[in-house]
Design a protein around this nucleic acid. Structure first.
Lengths: 236, 236
DNA sequence: AACTAATAAGCGGTAACCAA
DNA sequence: TTGGTTACCGCTTATTAGTT
């Protein structure tokens, strides 16, 4: 008799214990599954916003079983050694995802990590910094192709050295920025056309000293401001 | 006399024609603007569910005018001040208030086509944003008629202003969602009645890089919960 | 060192497509 | 038609760079 967790982990019932305190985990009990470390925890012993216990990464009081957890059929990855540096773990913020049904689909999964070059890295960060020359390429493409196809993204990945995922996210964020800007400009124009003063943004435009004013081009971070929308059609 | 479209396209009235069939486009008529190809289309001739006509991107039967569409460029810019103080800059994040004013920023602002190797390819979309009032209508009908006939969809298209294809897809997706939720409820009830572990944490093999990771809804949609359907009578 | 603006990367949701 | 997938959007989080 086994417990099956997720899709990959199978435990003997007697091995289904918290990776920290070793307490047996009952059916129906809320637990946290670390699918990479192949460890489960009770709710008292997973590290939410706190330092890992000293015992980590070595689980204690856990029934030793060479085959637990076992991997069903297709063993995807070799077992990941429990090697987290304290630095890695401090940045290892468990994100609870409680869905609207309240059935505790919390915990975390593979998405909290990403695999790269055979070793696992932290999920959030290290944030990739897109350098200026790479940014130039992306911006140049964006002006003509705001929604590049997968193939186009692949070519961009080759050209810039960035991963396709990074490029995809960049274009998404860039389009989002474009939309925000356009909304702002529509908003401003709405007042302008009625001879009104757009209240919040222009409350004080006295040529004040003190601060070197932020230029518009800085505001939109290098984008030439040509995407101003005007939607005067009442109903399309 | 001109028509102004989207960001920076200005057409003579006589040049404001569908880029495919050349039909003159009336004010208030629903159209598609491809800002990057500088072409507009009537709703019958943008490439939804079909390959683009061979003539693309060369418009046919369109009145030749060297200056259409023209770019207003400088005539638009001055309405936007080119400098922000940092305080004003922070005011940029008033997006919700702007949106709550209810000014329609919808429409096909972006090009929904991609350029690749010099020729335009059809992308998904243009993704329609179904507005709340349209959504209300659709949901109201769905409660009584989850599978509307073609005629019913036609009436809905008239009522909402959406195309029949969009409505058809919406009802398909809506029924799919209904099934997923029903399966999920049966699945959860299965455990609930036994006091078992409700949360099967979903694994996430981020196989190919660049591929979006599995989301919760994808997990739900991908799981096979129909085996639990027998556990409870259909009380929906 | 603390603050802040910019933005990369995460999330749920869903329109659109596709294969069977 | 259904079930499954993909891409995109709005929103949010959190890292990074630059300033105070």
């Amino acid at each position: 008799m086994v417990y099956k967790l997720g899709t990959d982990l199978i435990y003997h019932v007697t091995c289904h214990c918290c990776g920290h305190c070793g307490r047996g985990l009952a059916p129906g009990e809320q637990i946290v599954v670390d699918e990479h470390a192949k460890v489960v925890f009770c709710m008292s012993h997973y590290y939410q916003d706190s330092a890992p216990p000293e015992s980590y990464p070595q689980p204690i009081s856990v029934p030793i079983c060479d085959s637990c957890p076992s991997l069903p059929s297709t063993s995807v990855q070799p077992s990941i050694p429990l090697t987290f540096t304290p630095e890695q773990f401090s940045e290892f913020h468990i994100k609870k995802e409680i869905d609207s049904l309240g059935y505790g689909f919390d915990g975390y999964s593979f998405s909290d990590f990403c695999e790269e070059d055979g070793k696992f890295l932290k999920r959030r960060g290290p944030r990739t910094t897109i350098k200026q020359n790479q940014l130039d390429v992306l911006n140049r493409i964006f002006t003509t192709t705001p929604k590049p196809s997968k193939h186009a993204r692949a070519k961009l990945a080759l050209e810039t050295g960035l991963s396709m995922r990074v490029i995809q996210v960049w274009f998404q964020n860039r389009r989002s920025k474009e939309r925000r800007l356009k909304h702002l400009c529509n908003y401003l124009r709405h007042f302008e056309q009625r001879g009104l003063v757009p209240p919040p943004l222009f409350a004080n435009h006295s040529g004040g000293e003190g601060q070197p004013e932020m230029t518009f081009s800085q505001f939109i971070s290098g984008m030439d401001a040509s995407q101003f929308d005007e939607d005067s059609a009442d109903d399309q």
